[in-house]
Structures are given as C-alpha cells and as structure tokens.
C-alpha cells in the first residue's frame, strides 16, 4: 500500500483499555451470577489474549480458577472461497465438554458478526452449553447478521473504509486500540 496516507486515531490507550477490561470482568460476573459453570472462550488471535486477561482479573476478584479455551473459526467461515491465500490456522482447545456451561465468547472487535456466527457453529460441535454470551472489546457497528454483544468495552462508529486495530502487550508490545484510516 504505497499510496496510502494513513491516519490513526487512538480509541483506547493502555489505561483506558485496562479500565475497560476491569469493568467487563465485573459485568461478566453479574451476567453469569458468579463463576459457577463459567467458561471463557477467546477467538484466535487477540480474543484469546483478552479472554486470558479477563479470566485473570476474575480469578483475582473471586479467588477461584476460571476454565478458558481458544477457538479458531477459520474452518467455519462462510467465505473460504473468497479469502485468498490461506493464513495458517490457529489452535482450537477447549476445557472439556461444554454441555451445561455458561460460555462467554471473547473477541477483540465486533463488526459484521460473521466471525461470531462461525464461533457459535463451532461451539455447538463441542457440546450444548446452557448459555452462550458475547463479550467484545470494541463494537464498531456495521453488522451483516442479527448478532449483538452482551458486554462491550467501547462502542465506536467506524466507517467501512476504516480499520480498528487492537494491539496488546503479549503480541504487539503495547496496549492500545486505534482506528486506522487510509485517505
């Protein structure tokens, strides 16, 4: 992309991101009425790291250990024909049978809803959870499916030409969320 005049605006800095995660952790506890049967499942890649952080916050608050997992939804996408050269598929690992659990799906950005649709299909192949909720760091609008998040860190109106980049310490060396616009 040689021509691009790239403008990036910060949506959340490191402190705002930390505060958002603290609040989201509390909201997960409220939604689930505690930690009984609670399982956090992150969507590869950044959803997994965010899920891990939320789980650690909850564990610190409640003093119990929270089972967590990771799913890669690549094989459940509805646009495999269109996505071009394949990215290598990430790991899917779940803490046993999900039947009866309250699964909270964690992802970084909620956009079209297609990723979440794929995640719901994939989870169904691992059992029948009692309930599935959705927790995202950023809801950027632009849905193409009737899917909404139960818990949101930050709502932002972001146009189709813009991109929301979630960067986190473990993978990117810094905690921040930026909106990237190429003019």
């Amino acid at each position: 992309m040689a021509r691009a005049q790239i403008k990036s605006t910060t949506l959340l800095d490191a402190r705002a991101l930390a505060r958002a995660l603290q609040r989201m952790a509390v909201e997960i506890l409220e939604l689930a009425h505690g930690t009984d049967g609670l399982v956090l499942v992150g969507i590869q890649r950044r959803g997994v790291e965010l899920g891990e952080r939320l789980a650690r916050i909850i564990e610190k608050e409640e003093g119990v250990s929270i089972p967590r997992g990771a799913i890669d939804i690549t094989l459940y996408r509805d646009d495999l024909e269109l996505v071009g050269p394949k990215p290598v598929i990430g790991e899917t690992r779940l803490p046993g049978d999900l039947s009866g659990a309250h699964v909270v799906i964690v992802d970084d950005v909620l956009y079209t809803g297609r990723t979440v649709r794929a995640a719901l299909d994939e989870l169904a192949d691992f059992g029948r959870p009692r309930r599935i909720s959705l927790c995202v760091l950023v809801d950027r609008g632009g849905r193409e499916l009737p899917i909404q998040a139960d818990i949101v860190g930050k709502v932002a109106r972001v146009g189709p030409g813009e991109r929301v980049d979630v960067r986190i310490q473990e993978l990117d060396g810094a905690d921040e969320v930026v909106v990237v616009t190429s003019a």
């Binding site: 646009d79 071009g84 050269p85 394949k86 909620l110 956009y111 079209t112």
Partner: peptide
C-alpha cells in the same frame, strides 16, 4: 483444504464487502 479454498483472484472482492471482523 489448501487446494479447495482460496481463489486469490476473488480475494479483493471479498475484502471490499468487509468479510470477517479480522
């Protein structure tokens, strides 16, 4: 999987419509 999926010539069109959240 690698042979069946992925038509690179269609990839740009897919990005244009938004595709997945990633």
């Amino acid at each position: 999987y690698l042979l069946a999926g992925g038509r690179p010539e269609l990839a740009d069109a897919a990005k244009g419509t938004g595709g997945a959240a990633e």
